[in-house]
């Protein structure tokens, strides 16, 4: 059967998003034909919403909602799946200079997994750091499809993944309701829980999947004053 998950999204809990989780799920329901995702992972910036409970929404929309984090490290931004008490005790997720190697190692030891996101992005992506520093150890996967990527970033991300033998995931990085699910990850396994997601990210079979449409042919006008 398998599972398709958008592994990277931001709800109104992140300071730069105004998207309610309910609106995300409603949008996926509306756009199911073009973005057939089974669920989303909320990766709020520099925090973990330990007490958020989306079970009622999951039941109402028939979709999976999981909670994770996007943190900032000395090797760029990273998604942390399987956030647990041990990680929260040891690391201040609000710190924008977390030690990436320590985080990756601590995650592996405590039942979590760290996935560098948009690695081809200037300044905050893994690729730029690898140009000047030793590669990180024990990276299992990187995000090669990101809904917010600029031209050339995803090519850079793929090259990095192929060079280092990393597996590849995708996520929309949505901060707007209508962009949810545009990039995702297709797993061969059925996944309903964070424990299953962490297990599959480490050992399972999956690939990044792109649901972004081809560019539409817009109505043409000629100058800003015509809009």
């Amino acid at each position: 059967m398998g599972t398709i998950l958008d592994l990277h999204s931001h709800s109104e809990s992140s300071e730069d998003s105004r998207a309610p989780v309910e609106a995300y799920l409603n949008w996926i329901r509306l756009r199911r034909d073009e973005r057939p995702v089974d669920g989303i992972v909320l990766t709020e910036h520099r925090k973990f919403d330990r007490d958020a409970d989306y079970r009622e929404l999951e039941d109402r929309f028939g979709l999976v909602v999981m909670r994770a984090s996007e943190v900032e490290t000395d090797y760029g931004h990273m998604l942390v799946f399987g956030v647990n008490g041990e990680l929260l005790h040891r690391f201040d997720f609000a710190n924008v200079h977390l030690n990436a190697q320590e985080l990756i190692d601590a995650a592996a030891q405590s039942g979590a997994v760290v996935v560098p996101c948009h690695p081809g992005r200037p300044t905050i992506g893994l690729w730029e750091h690898y140009r000047h520093r030793e590669p990180l150890r024990n990276v299992v996967a990187v995000e090669v499809l990101n809904g917010g990527s600029r031209k050339g970033e995803e090519l850079q991300s793929r090259e990095l993944a192929e060079t280092h033998g990393y597996r590849m995931v995708g996520g929309s990085d949505s901060h707007l309701v209508s962009l949810i699910g545009l990039c995702a990850t297709r797993f061969e396994a059925d996944i309903r829980t964070m424990e299953e997601l962490v297990r599959e990210l480490r050992d399972g079979r999956y690939d990044a999947i792109d649901f972004r449409p081809g560019r539409r042919s817009p109505q043409r006008s000629h100058t800003a004053s015509d809009v």
């Binding site: 817009p218 109505q219 006008s221 000629h222 100058t223 809009v227």
Partner: peptide
């Protein structure tokens, strides 16, 4: 979608 060009003069 609407296509526009903002001119330098604008």
């Amino acid at each position: 979608p609407h296509a526009i060009v903002i001119t330098r003069e604008q």
